[in-house]
Design a protein around this nucleic acid. Structure first.
Length: 302
DNA sequence: CGCCAGGTATGAT
DNA sequence: ATCATACATGGC
């Protein structure tokens, strides 16, 4: 990939960073690997292309260098943070597996909406829904490229129209979120002065936003590193690796540690403790089913 | 067919 | 407060 004559910028990298691990680890849903090692995505109204060349990061177009450095959180010293996490064996294993993850600084509204779409859903389908939403409601910024919709574009639409992307019951939640952001009832600037718990409660005013989506929005959309989203995968990881609780000395940046753990438990080859936990959960499910059956029979025979 | 997916709202104990 | 269930959709 020789894009230098096209106005590409090479930025010297300080810490470790992997484009694949960072752009395809379930925090953003809009990046595509258009050829091996070359990633393309949309940040704001720009179509960005990224690739690595040794210890340098290629950024195209060059005019977006500053916004990309910010977006990839390149100014933060992850090596120092990782050193702190690696005191704990499971986190060391996770970091060894995906040492190049970074927490993106994504747009607040985009993060809010994409994680509303994420609920009770799987990552491939979330990607499809985000794409469909942009295609239908986002500004066209290039050949077959669309920006993420503004809250206004969604408010001017309707629950039915939003539902036409096949997002199911989430359509009404998206409309409510857009309405509240548009009216100013939910304002990202107002969140910075809030404690984590206050911030969660604040975002939970939106229908369809619970603690998990609130935490994802805070972590990925407002860079609140103390937010610790707990989904089914992290629940599993906590049961396997931290049954006594997640280390409190990491609290301040727990969200970053969470992301290594999430990617690890979701995509790394299964280890023995993982298989054991899977089995434990399966057996638990079986017990639940037995109980339900017995309950049913009791009612039918009364 | 049944189960699962980066959960949440709702109504019943 | 805790707990079960419905919820849209698509992949396997």
């Amino acid at each position: 990939m020789d894009m230098r004559d096209k106005g590409c910028f090479l930025h010297k990298l300080e810490g470790e960073i992997s484009l694949e691990e960072t752009l395809d680890c379930g925090q953003s849903f809009r990046w595509k690997e258009i050829e091996p090692g070359v990633w393309q995505g949309i940040v704001g109204k720009s179509i960005i292309t990224l690739f690595k060349e040794g210890d340098k990061l290629g950024i195209y177009p060059a005019k977006d260098i500053d916004s990309v450095i910010d977006y990839l959180d390149l100014a933060t010293d992850y090596e120092k943070l990782k050193l702190q996490y690696m005191k704990y064996r499971p986190l060391k294993d996770a970091i060894d597996y995906c040492p190049g993850i970074r927490i993106l600084r994504q747009d607040f509204f985009e993060t809010l909406i994409t994680f509303i779409l994420s609920q009770n859903n799987n990552i491939p389908r979330i990607k499809g829904l985000v794409e469909a939403l942009c295609r239908k409601f986002g500004e066209r910024i290039g050949d077959d490229a669309y920006a993420f919709p503004t809250c206004q574009a969604l408010v001017n639409s309707s629950v039915e129209e939003i539902g036409s992307i096949k997002c199911g019951f989430r359509a009404k939640y998206i409309f409510d979120a857009a309405s509240k952001v548009y009216s100013g009832q939910i304002a990202p600037e107002a969140i910075h002065s809030l404690s984590l718990e206050e911030a969660e409660d604040y975002l939970c005013q939106i229908k369809g936003v619970g603690k998990k989506v609130a935490d994802c929005t805070l972590l990925f959309g407002l860079h609140r590193l103390d937010a610790f989203p707990v989904d089914v995968w992290i629940k599993r990881a906590l049961n396997i690796f931290f049954p006594q609780g997640f280390p409190v000395d990491i609290n301040e940046t727990a969200g970053i540690a969470q992301q290594y753990l999430f990617h690890y438990i979701r995509t790394a080859p299964q280890t023995e403790p993982m298989r054991k936990e899977e089995k434990r959960l399966r057996d638990l499910e079986k017990e639940e089913k037995k109980k339900r059956k017995q309950q049913k029979e009791l009612i039918e025979n009364k």
